[in-house]
């Protein structure tokens, strides 16, 4: 069976379930399309990048972000309430002494409300099984080589909090604007599998 064929069979099954639920009053007409549109317009790594850039230029904001990320997000008009329920966000800051990396070993918990959907590698068994046991080896696969004296802290999102990494500001960026700094930040940087 080709992949396209598998896809068309499951597409038909999903449509059938939607029709059946609509018939039973458990879905409104157009509700699924509306939710898909809302989701597409929701979180993206650009939100996380804005948060990071603000923290780099405003030490007061950085302290508030690390102490109570949900409240600090509000200063930028962002929130963790875009998903099923408002979630607690914990931001962990990289330093010369400590590098943080985030995983969900039990499923695929991720700050979707803020960052949008996670990449497939984040949801893979390969990442989830290995990063808690050998983070240095996993980071090396991502091209991140840390000094031996840098402590690595892995955060497993096993309950209700979601995590985001605050990367270190790269050297030589003193002249950049906040928007230009945000442009340096990648999704992997927010997860901890890239330096920025």
């Amino acid at each position: 069976m080709s992949g396209d064929h598998v896809s068309s069979v499951i597409s038909a099954r999903v449509r059938r379930v939607e029709d059946l639920l609509e018939g039973r009053g458990l879905l409104d007409a157009g509700e699924i399309d509306r939710r898909i549109d809302e989701f597409a317009a929701g979180g993206s790594p650009a939100n996380g990048a804005r948060v990071v850039a603000r923290a780099w230029v405003d030490p007061g904001f950085a302290s508030r972000l690390l102490a109570d990320a949900n409240t600090a997000l509000g200063e930028l008009g962002l929130s963790m309430s875009g998903g099923l329920q408002e979630q607690r966000l914990k931001v962990v800051a990289n330093s010369a002494a400590e590098h943080h990396v985030v995983v969900c070993t039990l499923c695929s918990c991720y700050p979707i409300a803020l960052l949008g959907p996670s990449p497939s590698w984040y949801k893979s068994e390969a990442y989830r099984s290995r990063v808690v046991r050998d983070p240095r080896g996993v980071l090396r696969e991502f091209g991140v080589e840390l000094p031996a004296e840098t402590q690595i802290s892995v955060w497993d999102a096993s309950a209700e909090s979601r995590y985001m990494v605050l990367p270190r500001r790269p050297e030589g960026t003193g002249a950049l604007s906040e928007a230009e700094l945000a442009g340096l930040v990648t999704r992997k940087g927010l997860i901890g599998t890239a330096l920025v």
């Binding site: 995983v103 959907p117 590698w121 893979s124 068994e125 390969a126 099984s129 290995r130 808690v132 996993v138």
Partner: peptide
């Protein structure tokens, strides 16, 4: 689902320009 620390999984494969779905 409880794979944390389990041995035998391959290197991590990244998908460039991965779509949302």
């Amino acid at each position: 689902n409880d794979v944390g620390g389990m041995a035998g999984f391959p290197p991590i494969a990244e998908e460039p320009d991965e779509p949302r779905f």
